[in-house]
Protein backbone atom coordinates (compact mmCIF):
# COMPACT_ATOMS: atom_id res chain seq x y z
CA UNK A 1 0.00 0.00 0.00
CA UNK A 2 1.54 3.34 -0.99
CA UNK A 3 2.40 5.77 1.72
CA UNK A 4 0.11 8.78 1.70
CA UNK A 5 1.70 12.15 2.28
CA UNK A 6 -0.15 15.32 3.00
CA UNK A 7 1.26 18.39 1.25
CA UNK A 8 0.24 21.64 2.99
CA UNK A 9 -2.33 23.07 0.64
CA UNK A 10 -1.46 26.71 1.36
CA UNK A 11 2.11 26.06 0.30
CA UNK A 12 0.93 24.48 -2.95
CA UNK A 13 -1.47 27.32 -3.66
CA UNK A 14 1.27 29.83 -2.98
CA UNK A 15 3.69 28.07 -5.34
CA UNK A 16 1.11 27.72 -8.13
CA UNK A 17 -0.14 31.29 -7.90
CA UNK A 18 3.41 32.59 -7.77
CA UNK A 19 4.43 31.01 -11.07
CA UNK A 20 1.34 30.02 -13.05
CA UNK A 21 1.02 33.26 -15.04
CA UNK A 22 4.59 33.17 -16.28
CA UNK A 23 4.57 29.48 -17.17
CA UNK A 24 1.20 29.77 -18.91
CA UNK A 25 2.36 32.79 -20.92
CA UNK A 26 5.55 30.99 -21.83
CA UNK A 27 3.83 27.94 -23.26
CA UNK A 28 1.31 30.13 -25.10
CA UNK A 29 4.31 31.93 -26.62
CA UNK A 30 5.66 28.58 -27.78
CA UNK A 31 2.40 28.09 -29.65
CA UNK A 32 0.06 26.16 -27.32
CA UNK A 33 -3.66 26.91 -27.45
CA UNK A 34 -5.21 28.31 -24.27
CA UNK A 35 -6.77 24.92 -23.42
CA UNK A 36 -3.55 23.00 -24.05
CA UNK A 37 -1.66 25.60 -22.01
CA UNK A 38 -4.01 24.98 -19.03
CA UNK A 39 -3.33 21.25 -19.17
CA UNK A 40 0.40 21.53 -19.71
CA UNK A 41 0.88 24.02 -16.90
CA UNK A 42 -1.16 21.89 -14.50
CA UNK A 43 0.93 18.84 -15.43
CA UNK A 44 4.14 20.81 -15.01
CA UNK A 45 3.20 21.76 -11.45
CA UNK A 46 2.19 18.19 -10.65
CA UNK A 47 5.45 16.90 -12.03
CA UNK A 48 7.40 19.35 -9.91
CA UNK A 49 5.36 18.71 -6.78
CA UNK A 50 5.63 14.94 -7.13
CA UNK A 51 9.36 15.00 -7.78
CA UNK A 52 12.08 15.37 -5.17
CA UNK A 53 12.08 19.11 -5.82
CA UNK A 54 13.61 21.66 -3.48
CA UNK A 55 12.33 25.22 -3.75
CA UNK A 56 15.33 27.51 -3.54
CA UNK A 57 14.44 30.75 -5.30
CA UNK A 58 11.66 32.08 -7.49
CA UNK A 59 14.01 32.41 -10.44
CA UNK A 60 15.20 28.82 -10.22
CA UNK A 61 11.67 27.52 -9.76
CA UNK A 62 10.43 29.50 -12.76
CA UNK A 63 13.31 28.16 -14.87
CA UNK A 64 12.58 24.59 -13.81
CA UNK A 65 8.88 24.94 -14.56
CA UNK A 66 9.57 26.45 -17.99
CA UNK A 67 11.83 23.56 -18.88
CA UNK A 68 9.24 21.01 -17.74
CA UNK A 69 6.42 22.70 -19.64
CA UNK A 70 8.52 23.18 -22.78
CA UNK A 71 9.45 19.49 -22.85
CA UNK A 72 5.80 18.54 -22.35
CA UNK A 73 4.78 20.88 -25.17
CA UNK A 74 7.36 19.37 -27.53
CA UNK A 75 6.21 15.85 -26.58
CA UNK A 76 2.64 16.74 -27.55
CA UNK A 77 3.73 16.83 -31.21
CA UNK A 78 4.70 13.92 -33.40
CA UNK A 79 7.43 16.08 -34.89
CA UNK A 80 9.17 18.77 -32.82
CA UNK A 81 7.46 22.15 -33.35
CA UNK A 82 10.83 23.93 -33.46
CA UNK A 83 14.46 23.05 -33.97
CA UNK A 84 16.77 22.62 -31.01
CA UNK A 85 18.96 25.32 -32.57
CA UNK A 86 16.15 27.84 -32.05
CA UNK A 87 16.16 27.33 -28.31
CA UNK A 88 18.60 30.14 -27.62
CA UNK A 89 16.48 32.65 -29.54
CA UNK A 90 13.35 31.43 -27.78
CA UNK A 91 14.87 31.80 -24.32
CA UNK A 92 16.57 35.09 -25.10
CA UNK A 93 13.31 36.64 -26.33
CA UNK A 94 11.46 35.32 -23.33
CA UNK A 95 14.00 36.63 -20.81
CA UNK A 96 13.84 40.09 -22.37
CA UNK A 97 10.06 40.04 -22.20
CA UNK A 98 9.58 38.46 -18.79
CA UNK A 99 12.40 40.20 -16.89
CA UNK A 100 11.78 39.47 -13.20
CA UNK A 101 8.02 39.69 -13.10
CA UNK A 102 6.92 37.01 -15.54
CA UNK A 103 6.01 39.61 -18.18
CA UNK A 104 3.61 41.77 -16.15
CA UNK A 105 5.50 44.97 -16.87
CA UNK A 106 5.81 44.22 -20.57
CA UNK A 107 2.07 43.61 -20.74
CA UNK A 108 1.40 46.93 -19.02
CA UNK A 109 3.57 48.67 -21.58
CA UNK A 110 1.84 46.80 -24.37
CA UNK A 111 -1.58 47.89 -23.13
CA UNK A 112 -0.44 51.50 -23.06
CA UNK A 113 0.96 51.17 -26.59
CA UNK A 114 -2.28 49.59 -27.86
CA UNK A 115 -4.23 52.44 -26.30
CA UNK A 116 -2.22 54.88 -28.39
CA UNK A 117 -3.10 53.21 -31.71
CA UNK A 118 -5.36 55.12 -34.04
CA UNK A 119 -7.21 54.66 -37.31
CA UNK A 120 -6.84 51.57 -39.42
CA UNK A 121 -4.16 50.02 -37.23
CA UNK A 122 -6.37 50.30 -34.14
CA UNK A 123 -9.26 48.75 -36.10
CA UNK A 124 -7.22 45.84 -37.34
CA UNK A 125 -6.00 45.02 -33.81
CA UNK A 126 -9.53 45.19 -32.44
CA UNK A 127 -11.00 43.05 -35.21
CA UNK A 128 -8.26 40.43 -35.11
CA UNK A 129 -7.70 40.11 -31.35
CA UNK A 130 -10.94 41.25 -29.75
CA UNK A 131 -13.57 40.19 -32.25
CA UNK A 132 -11.41 37.34 -33.56
CA UNK A 133 -12.25 38.07 -37.17
CA UNK A 134 -10.49 36.02 -39.82
CA UNK A 135 -7.98 37.75 -42.09
CA UNK A 136 -10.38 37.45 -45.00
CA UNK A 137 -13.15 39.24 -43.06
CA UNK A 138 -10.74 42.01 -42.11
CA UNK A 139 -9.58 42.14 -45.71
CA UNK A 140 -13.16 42.65 -46.90
CA UNK A 141 -13.60 45.54 -44.51
CA UNK A 142 -10.33 47.20 -45.50
CA UNK A 143 -10.43 46.33 -49.18
CA UNK A 144 -7.24 44.31 -48.90
CA UNK A 145 -6.17 40.75 -49.63
CA UNK A 146 -5.22 38.14 -47.00
CA UNK A 147 -1.53 38.79 -47.47
CA UNK A 148 -2.04 42.51 -47.07
CA UNK A 149 -3.81 41.99 -43.75
CA UNK A 150 -1.11 39.58 -42.63
CA UNK A 151 1.59 42.15 -43.42
CA UNK A 152 -0.37 44.91 -41.72
CA UNK A 153 -0.75 42.83 -38.56
CA UNK A 154 2.93 41.98 -38.55
CA UNK A 155 3.92 45.61 -39.09
CA UNK A 156 1.59 46.60 -36.26
CA UNK A 157 3.19 44.07 -33.92
CA UNK A 158 6.64 45.33 -34.87
CA UNK A 159 5.52 48.87 -34.07
CA UNK A 160 4.12 47.72 -30.74
CA UNK A 161 7.34 45.91 -29.93
CA UNK A 162 9.31 49.11 -30.61
CA UNK A 163 6.85 51.07 -28.49
CA UNK A 164 7.35 48.65 -25.56
CA UNK A 165 11.12 48.98 -25.83
CA UNK A 166 10.85 52.76 -25.99
CA UNK A 167 8.67 52.88 -22.89
CA UNK A 168 10.97 50.49 -21.08
CA UNK A 169 13.99 52.67 -21.92
CA UNK A 170 12.16 55.77 -20.75
CA UNK A 171 11.24 54.04 -17.50
CA UNK A 172 7.57 54.78 -18.11
Amino acid sequence: MPEVHSIPSDAVVRLVRRHQDEVWRYVRYLGASAELADDLVQDAFLQVLRAPFVERSDKETAGWLRTVVRNAFVRSFRRPPFEQAELDAIESNWNTFATDDGGDESLRHLRACVDQLTGRVRDVVRWHYEERCSRSTIGERLGMGDDGVKSLLRRTRTGLRNCIERRRAEGA
Partner: peptide
Protein backbone atom coordinates in the same frame (compact mmCIF):
# COMPACT_ATOMS: atom_id res chain seq x y z
CA UNK B 1 0.45 35.82 -27.62
CA UNK B 2 0.61 38.98 -25.51
CA UNK B 3 -2.02 40.71 -27.64
CA UNK B 4 -4.26 37.66 -27.26
CA UNK B 5 -3.80 37.85 -23.50
CA UNK B 6 -4.63 41.55 -23.47
CA UNK B 7 -7.83 40.78 -25.35
CA UNK B 8 -9.15 38.11 -23.06
CA UNK B 9 -7.05 34.96 -23.33
CA UNK B 10 -5.87 35.12 -19.73
CA UNK B 11 -3.99 32.64 -17.58
CA UNK B 12 -6.49 30.95 -15.25
CA UNK B 13 -6.00 30.23 -11.56
CA UNK B 14 -4.89 26.61 -11.63
CA UNK B 15 -4.27 26.20 -7.90
Amino acid sequence: ASLQELHGSRPPDLS
